[in-house]
Design a protein around this nucleic acid. Structure first.
Lengths: 237, 237
DNA sequence: GCCTACAGTCTACATTGTAGAGAAGTTGCA
DNA sequence: TGCAACTTCTCTACAATGTAGACTGTAGGC
């Protein structure tokens, strides 16, 4: 109880500002970005914030809710602004945006992909549902019947998420020595069982995710456009 | 130390058979199928097998390796037999098979999707890489250049995984009262912010995953076929 | 018989999420 | 100002988890 006891309230003046959900979540996101999902423990996050771990429970009901909050925060970075009248180019732009978002927060992608699996659609964090609503709206405004809009959305988002997963899987290694490491990893495979994969090692090494995504989107969108009744498809004569 | 002490070696004769990796993994899979990923703890699995939890470490280096083993076991259920000469219908069949596999083991899907994200391609369990190799082989045999085969594979598997994630997300609720529950969940959404989604509630409720997958695959494959140089595409004149 | 290898067990510990009671700080009202 | 209600944060405690390390039993080879 001596006066020397208190850690340093005047020494670190900014530290003791009141917590808020935004502060908690963004610190959590920073931690996940920097050190991965496993590093995000209540204790560690508390320490990061200079607070007792228990104080976090005022801003997230439990750890799962905290993870949901982080996904929501990340998805909020995806701005969907309907400025382009052409729905295809809109969807294309959003796809590239989402791809970049995923590359910016690769450690969060598992959350984006798996958290919804354990939560019924209607009960998800609103931020998670917003892109769905916005894209539906975009498509309906472009002239699609609501049911068809849903079809397009599903095919589109399905491919998009799949591509992102694909791309992230190929970049767990340092891009600098990507090729060497890849070869090394693949070298472990028995040549008898994996001839094709081994032969493709150099091709696997230089992967242009953006081009690959763009091509897939083109195929899918023009395929969808040709199959559905819609007002006007600018890219098809 | 009395003779009555020993539990019951003759009473339960089958119980004390020697453990094996297969037994451990298949019990683990059964547990995950029945009660979800969280139920798969070392202690619980040990109990399920009538063994000390520590004995499991002889068959899997740690819990992560156990999870990898479970994914591998599931993927082994996917038989890729190149009987059909038409690559498109082959890929279509595989897609449906994988979809059914996912519906059979929905709790394992998060593993299939996220474990690879933390393991460099070359270091994954072999069982996980086998489908990749086989599909490459199938495409190359069908006449694709290896590089193009990789393109096709990526677009195809990307869409396929995306679709599976999509579909599983819509079926967390009991299909019996699917519609009611969905409406209930969606009812929580603020009408101002989510008009489209709410209006689509009835359509969301009856979702034909198989048809949706098939249509997407058709679009994607015929798009790919039209874009790449390949020997013969039976469905295109 | 004894020796070695291996399967399985026991004990122990650090780390995790989180319940529950309380302290400290803030705000509203007399 | 003083007091009371409320919010925010902290402390202590506990059960559950993964897993290291030493130990025990059992099977086969000499």
């Amino acid at each position: 109880m001596s006066p020397e006891e208190h850690p340093a309230p005047p020494a670190a003046p900014g530290k003791k500002a009141r917590l808020s959900r935004e502060i908690v979540l963004s610190t959590a996101l920073a931690l996940v970005d920097a050190e991965g999902l496993d590093a995000l423990t209540m204790r560690r996050l508390g320490q990061e914030l200079g607070r007792d771990p228990m104080s976090l429970y005022r801003y997230a009901a439990n750890r799962a809710a905290l993870l949901d909050g982080v996904s929501e925060l990340v998805l909020d970075e995806l701005a969907i602004i309907p400025d382009d009248p052409d729905w295809q180019s809109q969807l294309r732009r959003i796809a590239h945006d989402l791809r970049l978002l995923a590359l910016r927060h690769p450690n969060v992608v598992p959350l984006l992909v798996t958290r919804p699996l354990s939560t019924p659609l209607g009960l998800r964090p609103l931020g998670t549902l917003r892109p769905l609503e916005q894209i539906l709206s975009l498509l309906i405004d472009a002239g699609f019947a609501p049911v068809d809009a849903l079809h397009v959305y599903r095919a589109y988002y399905g491919y998009l998420y799949g591509h992102i997963l694909n791309e992230l899987q190929e970049f767990v290694v340092d891009p600098e020595e990507n090729e060497a490491l890849l070869r090394l990893g693949l070298h472990r495979l028995p040549p008898k069982d994996f001839p094709r994969l081994r032969a493709l090692a150099p091709v696997l090494a230089d992967y242009d995710g953006m081009a690959e995504l763009d091509e897939g989107i083109t195929i899918l969108l023009s395929g969808l456009a040709g199959r559905l009744p819609l007002p006007d498809s600018p890219t098809e004569p």
